[in-house]
């Protein structure tokens, strides 16, 4: 499903006041089936951007298109309902997403809401909870009596159970242990490919960008200042510097090794496998 922002400006209402523009004339197009990473500094508007894709933040100007559905100022109730069914969002803090008495009820809520029979919803819950690396015994627990990483996993499981067409993830790896993070992001990536989803993921971890995304949007003070392919972005060291964007560890170490040894490696390395291969190709190892 295609996601298009047409000159979107948005802000938050605080009592009678409005904040400065948290989204400022944002204009881009994410092709169906793409996996987009959204990066940028604290407070640059990443979470707000995702909320605008889910109808949680309504533009004061411009339009957001999700497939054929439009969100604009005149917030049509019906289109918001359609959007929430199509777009599954994992929030930055899983606590803001969990609410039911048990984990099972929490995960079943989405499917039940969309008319899935109870037995089927429970079957889905058992399946997704295992997919995120938790045992079925956790289904009867209260979501509030879980560790931080367990909560994050449950929140992700709840979204997978909804089978959305668009996946919108706000720092899904935060709080997961390294192995769990790899497993869960690979699961999401596989799912993205198999179901031909359109996925948008906010992350501070450039390894995630390098491993899972195909294109990147850089946010700065409410504006989408750059939208580029991942490899293109990380190849351009000058652009990275001026945007104050971090680089993946493999690339960082590559630059250091090239500087110290004076040997230029044959390609831009974004992952550890690429760097290992290049080091051998260049005869350094």
């Amino acid at each position: 499903m295609q996601i298009t922002f047409k000159d979107v400006t948005a802000d938050y209402q605080i009592g009678p006041l409005r904040t400065p523009r948290v989204l400022d004339s944002v204009d881009f197009n994410l092709e169906p089936g793409t996996f987009t990473a959204v990066i940028g500094h604290t407070g640059s508007g990443k979470s707000s951007l995702l909320k605008a894709m889910n109808g949680l933040l309504i533009p004061v100007k411009g339009e957001v298109h999700i497939g054929g559905t439009v969100i604009n100022r005149s917030k049509n109730k019906k289109s918001l309902k359609t959007i929430r069914k199509k777009v599954g969002m994992v929030f930055q803090f899983p606590e803001s997403q969990l609410f039911a008495e048990t984990v099972e009820q929490d995960i079943c809520f989405g499917p039940l809401n969309f008319g899935v029979p109870l037995e089927e919803a429970k079957r889905i819950a058992r399946q997704v909870i295992q997919q995120v690396g938790l045992g079925p015994d956790i289904l009867t627990k209260s979501p509030f009596a879980l560790s931080g990483g367990q909560k994050r996993r449950v929140a992700i499981a709840g979204i997978l159970a909804m089978q959305p067409e668009v996946l919108v993830l706000d720092e899904p790896g935060a709080g997961l242990d390294p192995r769990g993070k790899k497993e869960i992001l690979s699961l999401i990536s596989k799912w993205h490919n198999n179901e031909k989803l359109t996925t948008v993921m906010v992350t501070h971890d450039m390894e995630d960008v390098a491993h899972y995304a195909d294109n990147v949007v850089v946010m700065e003070k409410g504006q989408a200042v750059l939208h580029k392919g991942v490899r293109e972005l990380f190849a351009d060291i000058h652009a990275l510097k001026s945007l104050r964007v971090d680089i993946p560890q493999a690339r960082k170490l590559q630059l250091k090794i090239e500087q110290e040894t004076g040997v230029k490696l044959p390609q831009v390395c974004l992952t550890i496998d690429e760097l290992a291969n290049c080091l051998m190709k260049a005869g350094l190892v």
């Binding site: 500094h41 604290t42 930055q92 931080g148 720092e171 709080g175 501070h204 104050r244 971090d246």
Partner: peptide
């Protein structure tokens, strides 16, 4: 307790 996870890499 994982108090810096949501900071951007530079600030972190």
């Amino acid at each position: 307790d994982e108090a810096l996870v949501m900071l951007d890499p530079g600030s972190r």
